[in-house]
Amino acid sequence: MTGREGSGSVPEEGRIRPHADGSGAVDGAREALAAAQEALVAALVAGGPVPSGFDPDLLGAASRALLSKRAGEVARAWPALAASFGPRWGERFARWAEGRPPRGPWRDGWDFARAHRDALDPAAARELALAEARWRYDGNGEPRPRRFALRRIPGGGVAVIVSGRLQTVLQRPS
């Protein structure tokens, strides 16, 4: 690498900081490491190709172990969602999540639930509806708490939300 990040240039956010001694060899090695790490993560969680030199069977086993761990984490964050798939939860989640990079258990579960709206049982549908009542989530950015909302909840009642918190579920007298 040549002195692309030479004196006077401001390193961009997240870029590799140049070495004080200006050693191009060290920077080059660091950039190669960054690229190799990125390729490995892509292979493990984003359906990228197996980088050369790695054992494809072992990477496959690691990738499946990651999916299984994710399924367990999502089940803790979205218990009704996982329960609605019973013993097939792990398999169903893994099939959906394969090739989708993890976005944290909360959003992973949310995205999965939205993609399976028709398959949710009443408890899971209620869990999703309560989350959607409390938070504004466009499917991309971080969910944001709603300041105030009234939302009809499947299974009965209207949720009253203030500052992202569920205050009460009003039940209509039957």
């Binding site: 060290v26 090695a29 660091r30 190669a32 490491l33 960054a34 190799a36 790490q37 990125e38 490995l40 993560v41 892509a42 493990l44 969680v45 984003a46 990651l66 761990k69 994710r70 990079p101 993890p102 976005r103 944290g104």
Partner: peptide
Amino acid sequence: FVRAGGLEAGHLLPVPRTRAALEA
């Protein structure tokens, strides 16, 4: 390491046992 190039692995991943990784 747990992330690279903006991708989160969601798990702890091994580093290569190289001089470059040792420096990092």
